[in-house]
């Protein structure tokens, strides 16, 4: 388990390193598209209850902006 976690962390960091090296500096006035409401880097407000049913009907949870604790989801 710990070995897998270490491998995954290393892989993620390598991907991050490779990805970020290709970034360009974007000025505020160039962010009209980046700042569009649909570009927001999180789940949408209208997905709120969908996130809940994923949490209850599937074993995997987290890393998606939904809650990952509290409430039993037992029905």
């Amino acid at each position: 388990m710990m070995k897998r976690i270490a491998c995954l962390t290393l892989l993620t960091m390598s991907l991050l390193g490779a990805g970020l090296s290709g970034c360009v500096s974007v000025k505020e006035y160039q962010k009209s598209r980046i700042n569009d409401a649909d570009m927001e880097l999180s789940a949408r407000k209208s997905e709120k209850f969908e996130q809940n049913f994923y949490l209850y009907r599937e074993g995997a949870a987290g890393a998606n902006g939904g809650k990952s604790g509290g409430g039993c989801g037992c029905n």
Partner: peptide
């Protein structure tokens, strides 16, 4: 009782004028 503890580390990055990315790792212990 049932207790849950969560930690989240995340990085968001504007890559260019049209592309942005988000990475996160969220370990949890119950």
């Amino acid at each position: 009782p049932r207790n849950s503890y969560n930690l989240g580390l995340s990085l968001s990055q504007v890559i260019n004028k049209r592309l942005q990315a988000f990475f996160t790792i969220e370990p949890a212990f119950q």
